[in-house]
Structures are given as C-alpha cells and as structure tokens.
Design a protein around this nucleic acid. Structure first.
Length: 309
RNA sequence: GGCGCCAUGGCCAAGUGGUAAGGCAAAGGUCUGCAACACCUCUAUCACCAGUUCGAAUCUGGUUGGCGCCU
C-alpha cells in the first residue's frame, strides 16, 4: 500500500511548523485538512501558513476556493485524492496536516460520498424544522430509519435533516450506509500522528494567538471580506474568528466580547478535536512535553515509528 | 468604637422552614456531506460554631470576612 502520513492535533499546537521540517526530512508534500484555510483571503483568522513559512514545500488545498464557494467533506475528499495522486506522481510522500478529524477519516478509509448536488430537499427540511420543531422531524425520521432515529438526539436538527435528506436522495436509510462504511479498513499505509501538549499550555497559546490575530489586523480582514458581500451566510464566514468579528462589525457585540468569544470557541474546538482523536484507532500520540518541546527529537521519533511499520 | 447591609460550587445567580433552579467556565462524550458545524452528559449540601424545630441555606445568638455610613 502507498504511504500516507497524517499529522494532526488540536488547533494552535504547532502542526504547521513541525510539518515543514517533516516534509523536508522525508521528501513529502503537504495536503491541508482544514475547512477554512481552503479559502482565499481568510488568512489571519485561519492562522494560515504563509508562502514564506512553507519553505518551498508544496502545499495543497490552501487558497483554492473563493469565500463564496461551498466546501464540504465530499469536495474535500475529491480534492485530497487528486492531490495525493499528484504527490505520488511527483515521487513524494503525501502528508495530511490539519485539525479536521472527519476529513482525515474520509481519506484514510475512502469513505463513499455520492455526488448529491441537490440542496432543495435540505432547504425544505430546514423550513419544516423551523416551523414544527426538531421533535417533529425526529419522529418523521423514526418512520423511515428507526436505527438513525435512535442514534441521533432529538435536539440535533442538523443530523436529523441529513438523515432524512439521505433517505430521500438514495432511497435507503443512512444508518445502512454508515454501517458498511464503518467497517472499512484503511486504504493506505497510514502513520497517524497526533501532536498534543498539556491542556493549560494549549489554552494559553490559543488565548495568546487570538490576541496576535487582532494585532495583525483580523478586524480589517473581516471588514474587507464583508465589503465584498461575504456575510455570515457563507460557509467560509462560519469559521471561528470570523463569525465573532462579523457580530462585532454588525454592532451586535463589543470588540472585547468578540475577542473573548473567539478565545472561548477556539478552546472548545480544541477540546472537541482531542475527543475525536482519542477515538481514532492506531494513533500515535506525540506529547510535546515528553520531547522537551524539541522538534528535532520529535522528528527522530516520527521517522523511527515510520520505519518500524 | 457605633450603626446598617451582605456571605450559596471556579465565576454570575435563584431559593427566605421541608430536604439546593438556571447560566457561564472546567471536564467527559457523540459525530460518515454545513464538522472551526451540530448535539449530549456532568459538578455544592449553602463562611464557621451553637441553638430553636420532627425538619434550616432559609429562624435566633455568637464568631470570622467583606461593603457602606456615622463619631
């Protein structure tokens, strides 16, 4: 099987930095698994790596979409697969770097997402949810897909809608689809690394990083995007750091409040990411403090692990 | 020194005799097309001591701490 390296971890842990040295050492190229960094113009708030910081290492899935375009796991997977093939044909090793566990999973296990370009069903369901409440839709789901209904909490409107949508589009319950996909084995020779640090330190770094984003002009970045007509209804603007500043610019909250919200939401996000990675199988955790925060030592460990496989 | 007010989990905060609402933070979890999303679970014996009472966070007395006013 072809080699595929994953380097992930909670936001702000230092993935980008390490990924460059790793890529250089093993002859790799980087695919970003990040739902915000794909967008052009969303730089500061997404902590996007700069051209300079790339040090000549090829990066894929960064700055490839217009902020008005949609992005989702189906699109990600298609683009990621394409990038992987390209990297192999360059004679290099693909390294997926990014914090979106769901995206990473889709590539490793080659999870099937059929082309579904129809969004009217979803809109209709959203309207129904608005009018009649999630309870109503949950009951509807129970009629067509009992398994999913039991699994999805009645309050989780988004997942309920998706389950019903799937059924209407494919004429079979999503629970069935999930079951077959879940049993899949990795289609690559995967080395899955999760970079991590002590929680308090991570939170400190997050808080500090948000302050720096503000200093670097996050507000202007968002203002600029809004002037181009990109508001909170777009996927891109739902990213942490963007939606809060939009609220501030719309006069809903103070700047101080927005900054606090960004910090809090980012901390919550990091926590959720860790929950995801803990659940993922065959993961090699790299606790930075165990390596004295020395990237050299971390790199030797990583290469050692890869050679032993 | 005197008078008055206050004291509930990390923070904010209900409850004024019947066995501790809620929000936030923290922690844990779910996730198969919006995933930087959405959702779930979960945390106290009420400053301390003594008393009244079948029963007190809730009443009484005292102690400690804080706030305000007065001399």
């Amino acid at each position: 099987m072809d080699k595929l390296i994953i380097l992930t971890g909670p936001t702000a842990v230092g993935k980008s930095d390490l990924s460059i040295s790793l890529a250089k050492r093993i002859g790799g190229e980087i695919i970003s698994a990040d739902s915000i960094q794909v967008y052009k113009g969303l730089d500061i708030g997404s902590a996007k790596i700069t051209k300079k910081e790339m040090h000549g290492v090829n990066h894929y899935l960064i700055d490839v979409l217009d902020p008005k375009e949609d992005f989702n796991i189906y699109i990600f997977k298609e683009m990621a697969k394409e990038a992987i093939d390209k990297i192999y044909s360059n004679g290099k090793i693909p390294i997926i770097v990014g914090g979106t566990g769901f995206y990473i999973q889709s590539v490793i296990y080659d999870i099937d997402f059929e082309k579904e370009d129809n969004s009217t069903i979803r809109k209709e369901l959203e309207e129904i949810a608005d009018k009649k409440g999630s309870e109503y839709l949950h009951n509807k789901l129970k009629e067509i897909d009992e398994t999913s209904a039991m699994k999805i909490h009645p309050n989780n409107i988004k997942r309920i809608i998706r389950a019903i949508e799937f059924y209407k589009l494919n004429n079979r319950p999503i629970s069935e689809h999930n079951e077959t996909e879940r049993d899949k084995e990795p289609v690559y020779d995967v080395n899955y690394f999760v970079l991590n640090d002590k929680r308090e330190l991570l939170y400190e770094r997050i808080n500090k990083r948000v302050d720096i984003m503000i200093e670097q002009g996050l507000v202007d970045e968002v203002k600029n995007l809004m002037e181009q007509g990109i508001d909170e209804s777009y996927n891109s603007m739902q990213g942490i750091g963007y939606k809060e500043i939009v609220s501030y610019l719309n006069g809903k909250i103070s700047l101080e409040q927005a900054v606090e919200d960004i910090k809090k939401n980012t901390r919550h996000f990091a926590k959720r990411q860790l929950t995801w990675f803990r659940r993922e199988k065959d993961v090699k955790w790299i606790e930075k403090y165990e390596f004295n925060y020395d990237n050299e030592r971390i790199l030797s460990y990583m290469t050692e692990v890869m050679n032993n496989d």
